[in-house]
C-alpha cells in the first residue's frame, strides 16, 4: 500500500511515519509539508505514483485540508485508481468532523496521535 501524508508539522509527520513503520506493513510512505506539493504530485504522477490512501491534516497555512479536498475532487476523475482520504487532525472541533462528511472521498476522520487501531482501519 502506498500512502501519502500531508501535514505542515514536521514533528507530526515524523510521528505518524514512525508509527506506520512500526505498526503496519506499509512501507511506501511519501510525506508532503504542503498540500500544494501533494496536489502537484497527484496531478502529474503516473498511475503507479498515485497512493491508495492519503492521510490529510486540516490546519495548514496557505492551502488547508479543505482546500486540498476541493482540488482533489476535481482531480479524482482523472485518477484510474480509487484513493481513500483519511483526515488526520489534532482538532477536537466537532464542526470539522461534520464538514468532513461532505466529502465523499473522505473515508474516515482520525484524531492525532495515530493509534494502532487507526492503522488497522487504514490497512483494511
Amino acid at each position: 500500500m502506498k500512502i501519502f501524508i500531508i501535514d505542515d508539522d514536521q514533528l507530526s509527520i515524523l510521528l505518524t511515519k514512525t508509527m506506520l513503520e512500526l505498526e503496519s506493513s506499509i512501507t511506501d510512505i511519501t510525506t508532503f509539508l504542503s498540500a500544494d506539493d501533494a496536489l502537484e504530485a497527484l496531478s502529474t504522477g503516473i498511475d503507479s505514483d498515485i497512493p491508495d490512501t492519503i492521510l490529510l491534516d486540516i490546519n495548514m497555512p496557505g492551502i488547508d485540508g479543505w482546500d486540498f479536498l476541493d482540488s482533489f475532487s476535481s482531480l479524482e476523475n482523472k485518477l484510474n485508481k480509487v484513493c481513500k482520504v483519511y483526515i488526520l487532525t489534532s482538532s477536537l472541533d466537532s464542526a470539522d468532523a461534520e464538514k468532513s462528511k461532505e466529502y465523499p472521498q473522505v473515508a474516515g476522520f482520525l484524531h492525532k496521535p495515530i493509534t494502532s487501531e487507526d492503522i488497522t482501519i487504514i490497512e483494511a
Partner: peptide
C-alpha cells in the same frame, strides 16, 4: 486555538509518549 494550537503539541507529545 484550544482545539488546534493547544491540541496539536499535546497530540504530538502523546504520540511520542506512546512511541
Amino acid at each position: 486555538i484550544v482545539s488546534h494550537n493547544l491540541r496539536s503539541p499535546v497530540a504530538n507529545a502523546l504520540g511520542l509518549a506512546n512511541l
